[in-house]
Design a protein around this nucleic acid. Sequence first.
DNA 1: AGATTTTTTGCGGTTTTTTGCAATATTTTT
DNA 2: AAAAATATTGCAAAAAACCGCAAAAAATCT
Lengths: 249, 249
Amino acid sequence: MLKKERQAYIVHQVNLHNKVLSASLSTEIDVSEDTIRRDLQELSEEGKLIKVHGGALSHAFNDITYSPKKVYAQDNKKIIADKAVKLIKNGMFVLTGGGTTIIELARSLPVSLSATFISGSIPAIVEYMHHPNIEVIVIGDKLSKNSKITLGADALTRIKSLKPDLCFLGINSIDLQHGITDNDWDVVHLKQAMITASQKTVCLTISEKINTIQPIHVCDLEKIDILITELPHDHPMLQPYKDAGITVL
Amino acid sequence: MLKKERQAYIVHQVNLHNKVLSASLSTEIDVSEDTIRRDLQELSEEGKLIKVHGGALSHAFNDITYSPKKVYAQDNKKIIADKAVKLIKNGMFVLTGGGTTIIELARSLPVSLSATFISGSIPAIVEYMHHPNIEVIVIGDKLSKNSKITLGADALTRIKSLKPDLCFLGINSIDLQHGITDNDWDVVHLKQAMITASQKTVCLTISEKINTIQPIHVCDLEKIDILITELPHDHPMLQPYKDAGITVL
DNA sequence: AGATTTTTTGCGGTTTTTTGCAATATTTTT
DNA sequence: AAAAATATTGCAAAAAACCGCAAAAAATCT
């Protein structure tokens, strides 16, 4: 890999995720951390990013909001995305919902992956669209301004006609007794259809939403195959869900 | 192998793979690396690629350097968009295709306008989505990476089920004898369906595409109600189209 | 055609760039 | 305060670029 090529990649990653870790980049592009550090140094001098202890930050995202210390704590959603990516194999049909966690997943897909992604989430579709080896199926219907996904009868019937290998769902609430719950009538219907259609359902959520409840019931825990959070898989908070038969990553 | 031939090959490779290595080229074409380096030097001075340590990168790899010609075209599209916007009234159902002219139209919509826009073009949908008073209906199907619009049987049947007031079509070729022509089989079918479904069809195009022909026939001039270009409505080039019964703006 | 000039190309030697490593210092975490 | 992670520095090996220079090839001019 050429030096400039590598630096362009780094800049791309910084702009995409607002931050990068030297260690991650090192393993990702298989060069020593020294080299990464020197790259960051140069790019920093060129004003293309801001170098901090442990990695670099996006210039645009650089107000007081992010102190250098924050770089160490990887964003929870990035951690979740990285775990989720490992489930996707070449040739798979993957159905995804909306939400920021799903966007992060879309941005973390390795360039080498070639698969088919189905979604009604416009931001997610935009990310998939930029990927060189991914086919995109758009679920059409009326676009909800709030959630930026298509909702309605058309979307439901289209989803019911599919049998994807995998379904990634960003969820707002999960609880041992009440299972998955949500607060939007149409979104709930969509999620139910997605779960029913898919061979395997993977739920993504940050840990603070675990053991919370919302007004509308989506499905029971039995319907969920895999649960991904930013916590280590052996965290005590997750044990009850393992006992309920869910694979926790 | 001639020098010019060799350099043409190098440019081709750069455009194809976005990067080339001096060492690879050397063994590939069987000349010394010095020669390759001198070639890259010259091509770099001609602006055909970017020379870096170890090889060269495509111009597209770095940042897009847009030529004055592109900027000129951009201005023209803005003129076209402003004319087109005037046709849209509150409460209308508007069907739009893809292409840069349509994007420009989407960006030019006044905030006060409240209407419903139907499209399968992801970039257009993104623009509509940001508008406060516009409802968006997404036409779903397989996403074409090139044109960034959804194409396929699903999209066709969905469009056929609609009766929009207005249809805006960015066109690639228009000619007095052959009418509207295009070069992509699927896109042609989509445009035909859009024209048939709509009560009024508005074609948008920059003047340089007037009186040009492409391989596949979309429709005859009779199907077109309004033609919008960046030229003044009384420009002589447009007179024949007026005579053919088209309203020219 | 033959001679002369110009261009192109490869080669040896030198300089610069790039990269990884090891030892040491600094920062962050626990 | 100790431990772990990250930075810095100097250095050496490899790769690549650079600099004439001369042979070969092509173009130009008698």
